[in-house]
Write a protein that binds this DNA or RNA. Structure first.
Length: 823
RNA sequence: GCCGAAGUGGCGGAAUUGGCAGACGCACUUGACUCAAAAUCAAGCGAUCUCUGAUUGUGCCGGUUCGAGUCCGGCCUUCGGCACCA
């Protein structure tokens, strides 16, 4: 008897697959399926999160191939980024060398896992062949007016020595290193994602294959607010202050105005007045606060009077203008009208500074009085103290007041988003250079397409915490202007790596194209990605950016798709002992160790069996042992009968009860595995169904020993191997061969279960009395309700419960249960 | 504070349409094999009690229903996201 030896069979089959170009993608047929796992940053080492996401994708890819789909299942590298550059500073290894070495190391591990990637389509975002097209896409955005440079207050991470996009600030810290983010005024490149805010929000409707929580997170991030922009006139100079409000119905309740510290009018209104020094001190103090402090809800709301006032357009009233620490320059217009009676923040602020409070919305049943209020009234109601609008329900009041403002051009309906434009400049070396030059004569000039890529020079000096090496590289810096051939200076910022990852799934469809980013026809054959799999941490970042890119590319006529990812599976984390695996906790288990000890098939099986894919999974060494035991158990079964059943593929006619039972168990498992993979992605229950089938086969084996029906056993073993093959591809291949089959198990057609085998002559039903289980009955299959009921009532045990009682009602569910209600 | 998800044995989890709660695996107990152990095969395994049976049990309280882990109302806890967004 041969032992199960994954250390031998796994490399054997990996070699076979590789030598036979096994996972090369077919032409996209009518039934195409694009399975994609988020490509990794090449850190050099796979972790369990990687192993999990690749295992999920691989089961799908293999299963769908067997189901007759042409499957695209590629892999690549999100290869630009800070860690490589930081390593360069510390270890004196060039980021390119380090990155490519890491890629090789990780690819080796992925191959050791037996994942069915088409390596011919591999892309690395740091390769000039790839970032040429990243730069080309930047120019496309630029030409379409979607890339622009402006001076703005931006988030700066001191530790990473670069700016960050809004999406990359988490709880006031850098997403990568958690360092507190500070605000700097810098001139930077942005992509106009806000132009697409409405479509990004609207098209979430199309994403029914996404988890609801991800859609909700994106919806919240885009943060649409409908309201009005209203202009107040400054007393004295006649200037205008526009404010955004979602409550135009409360306009008559305005008793003051607050500006953000950064608002340009603050300086204008106070310059040369007696209040100048005091206001400036306040502004400076406010601006020095970190983002964390400033956005904390606990921070006290403070403000200061500017000395100026403005006029409420709706009633001509003069109200004071203040500067407040709670008004954000980046949202709305950076100015807020104060309606203390109907906004809790305004209420607290007004109490603190003794500003007047005026009720303009009152509940329908009683009149709201200021003296009785200890908090703002924010619910619906009826307008009061609002001149001709008195008596209107507030919803109607909103429309009426906005319409009235529109007529006199002092305000208008307005939609505001929380989403800001995407800041894409990075003051670092290891990224795609922004293809722009600055000419003294021509100004900002895009690099011409035929001189792309703007290549990263390799001979650069990395310094600790300093500016980007590109800015100090004379050869890179100095160039000629594409417009006038005069001397010009290159942009030295590189692009946010999230740009590179926003279009890689397009490139996989045509990875070697050196004429175009990708060919439209090849792209349309595969895109959209049918199933995308990755971590929830990208719920906003990568997934929002990719949706934005797809829409721009669609508008540019490059793709038919309006959304890139039809279905999204947000896979859970892999923990150990209830905590995230981390070096500091000492609870890290690496895929390498598992492969070495049990083989890739065991590791894959465990990671899929331990929990449904979207849930967090707790790594259990015992659980892995259990899966290893299971595979050995399958191995022994096949090993015992392989010789006896090889070639036994005759027709199965009427068979004895033991054989019928085995066939039923196998076909039942096949049905469940098929449905669990296809409809539900519940690999854990699919695997448990295979386990049950194996247990049934053991039952048959223990009963019959060597006296088995070889044709029935042949069917059982072949079906078991086919079912198991997507989960344990090496073992599947080996057993398939040992059962005497030609070709690869992975090129077989996924078997269909036989419904007639599932039919039973007799079924067990449950008999309840008053909803309580009082007995079980084996009855012929296919009886109707009346027949079931009378059989149930004739059963000795049931008679004891119903004897002498009146049967009020009886419910019979065919083939399942009878419930007798007695009194 | 707002939004979302989840609470089921000692543990991971199952129950897909309202119909036997706990599939499958782990752990544990027992039997077989063995000189013995490991491995393997087999059986048992929610709790309580007056133990061939009954009662009870899916975070808590209530409801709908012949019947609720599943549906409805109200809470509690945990996790995740957003958070002065005007």
């Amino acid at each position: 008897m041969a032992e199960y030896n994954p250390g031998v069979i796994e490399p054997k089959w990996q070699k076979y697959w590789e030598e036979n170009d096994f996972y090369k993608t077919d032409e996209a047929g009518k039934k195409k399926y694009y399975v994609l796992e988020m490509f990794p940053y090449p850190s050099g080492k796979l972790h369990m999160g990687h192993m999990r996401v690749y295992s999920i994708g691989d089961v799908l890819a293999r299963f769908l191939t067997m189901r007759g789909y042409s499957v695209l299942h590629p892999m690549g590298w999100d290869a630009f980024g800070l860690p490589a550059e930081n390593a360069a500073i510390e270890n004196k290894v060039h980021p390119a060398d380090g990155t490519y070495a890491n890629i090789e190391a990780m690819k080796k591990q992925q191959k050791a896992l037996g994942i069915s990637y088409d390596w011919d389509r591999e892309v690395a975002t740091c390769s000039p062949d790839y970032y040429k097209w990243t730069q080309w896409l930047f120019l496309l955005f630029y030409k379409r007016g979607l890339a622009y440079k402006k001076k703005a207050s931006v988030n700066w991470c001191v530790k990473c020595a670069t700016v960050l996009a809004n999406e990359q600030v988490e709880n006031g810290g850098c997403w990568r290193c958690s360092e507190d983010v500070v605000v700097k005024d810098l001139e930077q490149w942005f992509l106009r994602i806000t132009d697409y805010a409405e479509r990004l929000l609207d098209d979430l409707k199309l994403l029914s294959g996404w988890p609801e929580r991800v859609r909700t997170m994106q919806e919240n991030w885009i943060g649409k607010s409908e309201g009005a922009e209203i202009e107040f006139t400054i007393v004295g100079n006649g200037g205008k202050i526009p404010v955004f409000t979602t409550r135009p119905d409360t306009l008559f309740g305005v008793t003051y105005m607050v500006l953000a510290a950064e608002h340009p009018l603050v300086d204008e209104l106070t310059r040369g007045t007696e209040r100048e020094a005091e206001v400036r001190a306040f502004v400076d103090k406010t601006r020095k606060l970190t983002e964390v402090d400033r956005s904390s809800t606990e921070m006290e709301k403070v403000g200061i009077f500017t000395g100026a006032s403005c006029v409420n357009p709706v009633n001509g009233e003069e109200v004071p203008i203040l500067v407040g620490n709670y008004v954000l320059m980046g949202y709305g217009t950076g100015a807020v009208m104060g309606v203390p009676a109907h906004d809790q923040r305004d209420f607290e602020f007004a109490k603190k500074y003794n500003l007047p409070i005026r009720v303009v919305i009152t509940p329908k049943d009683h009149l709201l009085k200021v003296e009785e209020m200890d908090e703002a009234y924010v619910d619906d109601g009826v307008l009061v103290n609002s001149a001709e609008f008195d008596g209107l329900p507030n919803e109607e009041g909103m429309r009426a007041i906005t319409a009235s403002l529109e007529q006199t051009d002092r305000g208008r309906a307005k939609v505001t988003y929380r989403l800001r434009d995407w800041l894409i400049s990075r003051q670092r070396y290891w990224g795609a250079p922004i293809p722009i030059v600055y000419c003294a004569k021509c100004g900002t000039v895009p690099v011409e397409e035929d001189s792309l890529p703007v290549e990263l020079p390799k001979d650069v000096v990395f310094k600790q915490g300093g500016q980007s090496p590109l800015a100090a590289h004379e050869g890179f810096l100095h160039t000629v202007c594409p417009a006038c051939d005069g001397p010009a200076r290159r942009e030295t910022d590189t692009m946010d790596t999230f740009i590179c990852s926003s279009w890689y799934y397009f490139r996989y469809t045509d990875p070697h194209n050196d004429e175009q980013a990708f060919n439209r026809e090849k792209n349309d054959a595969w895109i959209p990605v049918d199933q995308y799999i990755g971590g929830i941490e990208h719920a906003i970042l990568h997934l929002l950016y990719s949706r934005f890119f797809t829409k721009v590319l669609h508008d540019a006529g490059m793709t038919a798709a309006v959304e890139p990812f039809t279905r999204l599976l947000a896979q859970g984390m892999v923990n150990k002992d209830g905590a995230k695996m981390s070096k500091s906790k000492g609870n890290v288990v690496s895929p390498d160790e598992i492969i070495a000890k049990y083989g890739a098939d065991t590791g894959r099986l465990f990671i899929l069996f331990a929990a449904p894919p979207e849930r967090d999974l707790d790594w259990s060494d015992r659980g892995v042992e259990g899966c290893y035991r299971f595979l050995k158990r399958v191995w022994r079964l096949v090993d015992r009968y392989a010789g006896a059943v090889a070639g036994q593929n005759g027709e199965i006619g009427a068979v004895e009860p033991a054989e019928r039972e085995l066939r039923r168990a196998i076909h039942l498992a096949l049905k469940k595995v098929t449905e669990d993979i296809e409809d539900r992605f519940n690999f854990n229950t699919a695997i448990s169904a295979v386990m049950e089938a194996v247990n049934a086969a053991y039952g048959y084996m223990n009963e019959k020993e060597d006296d088995i029906d070889t044709v029935v056993m042949a069917e059982a073993l072949n079906l078991l191997v086919l079912m198991l093959a997507p989960f344990a591809p090496h073992l599947g291949e080996e057993m398939w061969q040992r059962l005497g089959n030609a070709d690869s198990v992975h090129q077989q057609v996924w078997p269909a279960y036989d419904p007639s085998v599932l039919l039973q002559d007799e079924v067990e039903i449950v008999v309840q009395v008053n909803g309580k289980v009082r007995g079980r009955l084996t009855i012929p299959a296919g009886l109707n309700s009346e027949e079931m009921q009378s059989l149930a009532m004739g059963d000795q045990r049931i008679v004891e419960f119903i004897d002498g009682k009146q049967i009020v009602k009886a419910i019979a569910v065919p083939g399942k249960l009878v419930n007798l209600v007695v009194r």
